[in-house]
Design a protein around this nucleic acid. Structure first.
Length: 473
RNA sequence: GCGGCCAUAGCUCAGUUGGUUAGAGCGCCUGACUGUGGAUCAGGAGGUCGCGGGUUCGAACCCCGCUGGCCGCCCCA
């Protein structure tokens, strides 16, 4: 029976063209994160299982890939290790482990794969890359604003313009639910249902409430609240139009202002909720100073699945993807679960795979990302001239270090070698036949135009560099 | 975890009510072209029809199971 050659379910091989796109995006993300003063970190793929269990909620525990104990314990089916589920919990472990040795404010980024034993779907895999930025050690809403700015900067640099950073707050959410009179043990259910409001409508959500055993009056109050939010958009538009000249305000800012006002009315009696609202207000103001307020939209309906969030939560969405491109929030208790000391933290994660998916579908990658493996291919005339071709390739690499030089790996008909270069999209081919060699020359062929000219062998590097720089412009 | 659809050449797909040797387009290889890719023409290779079982004189086609993929639910990056 032939061995199965497909990768394991939900896992992927990345062929060169895939990887070029992924690496391009990673490059942009790294550059932006570095420009905001974040430092790189990597942690092991595998964690002790106790490190991960209980950090992601009920659902999360089930989706952790567990690794059986080795040796004689293997039979028991007991697991002591697991593949990392996200990059936030490993970060919290690192912070607890290295404590004072880390800077007072630890700003790190981390781009690595994580694993979830989930069912694969569009844009969802069992192994996928997260690109995290986090700042440890301060409660200041400056961090929330900064990570929103960084994420926004990344997406803009990649060519996105129609994304929205939806912003909410766990405490505000709690306040809203309490104000509506939703029983404490039904709050999770209520959020799941509310999240679908724009999809299934008021009736649908009401049915969902009923199915989940939610009090009908409380549900009604919740729905009343959430249904007034879209109306604020219209109002915000009007306000923005009127005040644009005076304040330089935008529609998004006007909307956020209106949404905050509406929240204050609804949550007034709830202390933690009121503090949360003030926190959101500060985040929006700082984001404005960073120039990204127009991308932020306060959305009291987003909840996020991970259980460790304690304050602000955010999510980035684009119109053509059901899920989000990324998300994050504040988690002030997570490090404490490892160290016992309360250490505050806030971070954000971009989903590399989803970004690549949307960019591929929209054709957003620059042309250079799809370019060939080499800038020039040196052909091999015959068995006797193999060494000469190798020597010439070495000369080229030395005289033009930026040039990517390939050599056809065996003597073959010239037509085959040109066909190979053409198939790979290599833009230039060097031919060194007996005639050229005798004169100390090479023939340089431009594969795009078909033009070919002979030049002195030592001029080739300079010629090619110039030709390619011209083409890149 | 639940429901629906799907799996035939390297790729995209045809394949009649179950009936001889399973086809097309693109791609690939060879040649026309003994120092030149893409265009044209001629020829060629390539398939245990996802895997396993069953029904039948006979299965790519019907039935069951498995594996993998897609869509919706749930959840999520």
């Amino acid at each position: 029976m032939p061995a199965k050659t497909q990768p394991a379910r939900g896992m992927r091989d990345f062929l060169p063209a895939d990887l070029r796109r992924r690496e391009y995006v990673i490059r942009v993300i790294k550059d932006v994160y570095e420009r905001y003063g974040f430092e790189p970190l990597e942690t092991p793929a595998v964690e002790n299982i106790e490190t991960l269990m209980g950090k992601y909620g009920e659902e999360g525990n089930q989706l952790i890939f567990k690794i059986l104990k080795r040796g004689e314990h293997e039979k028991t089916g007991e697991a002591d290790l697991a593949l990392r589920y996200d990059l936030t919990v490993p970060l919290a472990r690192v912070v607890a482990e290295y404590g004072e040795r880390l800077p007072k404010f630890f700003k790190r980024y981390q781009i690595q794969p994580v694993w979830r034993a989930d069912r694969p779907a569009r844009g969802r895999y069992r192994e996928f890359y997260q690109c995290d930025v986090d700042c440890i050690g301060t409660r200041s809403p400056v961090v929330e604003a900064e990570i929103c700015a960084a994420a926004s900067d990344v997406l803009r640099t990649l060519g996105f313009d129609n994304f929205t950073i939806r912003l909410n707050h766990r405490q505000v959410l709690a306040g809203v639910l309490e104000a509506a009179g939703v029983a404490a043990d039904k709050q999770g259910d209520a959020l799941v249902a509310i999240d679908k409001l724009d999809k299934i409508g008021r009736e649908g959500v009401a049915r969902e409430f009923d199915a989940r055993g939610l009090d009908a009056d409380a549900g009604g109050r919740l729905l009343d609240f959430f249904e007034t939010l879209p109306e604020l958009e219209h109002a915000a538009e009007l306000i923005a139009d009127e005040t644009l000249d005076i304040k330089g305000g935008t529609r998004a800012e006007a909307y956020n202002h209106a949404a905050l006002g509406r929240l204050v009315e609804f949550v007034s009696g709830h202390d933690a909720g009121a503090l949360g609202i003030e926190n959101l207000r500060a985040i929006v103001e700082y984001a404005d100073a960073y120039g990204v307020a127009d991308k932020i939209k306060i959305d009291p309906s987003i909840a996020r699945g991970l259980s460790y969030y304690t304050g602000a939560i955010m999510e980035i969405s684009v119109p053509d993807l059901a899920g989000s491109l990324g998300g994050g929030g504040r988690y002030d208790n997570l490090v404490g679960m490892f160290s016992g000391k309360e250490i505050t933290a806030c971070g954000f994660s971009l989903g590399l795979d989803r970004i690549v998916l949307v960019m591929t579908e929209r054709g957003m990658f620059p042309e250079k990302v799809g370019r060939a493996s080499a800038d020039v291919l040196v052909t091999v005339w015959n068995e006797e001239s193999v060494k000469d071709s190798l020597a010439f390739a070495a000369e080229l690499r030395k005289s033009a270090p930026a040039l990517r030089v390939g050599v056809y790996p065996e003597a073959d008909k010239l037509g085959k070698q040109l066909k190979y270069a053409s198939a790979l999209g290599v833009p230039f081919v060097v031919v060194i036949g007996d005639d050229e060699r005798a004169r100390g020359e090479v023939a340089l062929k431009d594969m795009k135009t078909g033009e070919q000219r002979t030049l002195k062998r030592e001029q080739a590097g300079a010629e090619l560099s110039e030709a390619l720089n011209g083409a890149a412009k």
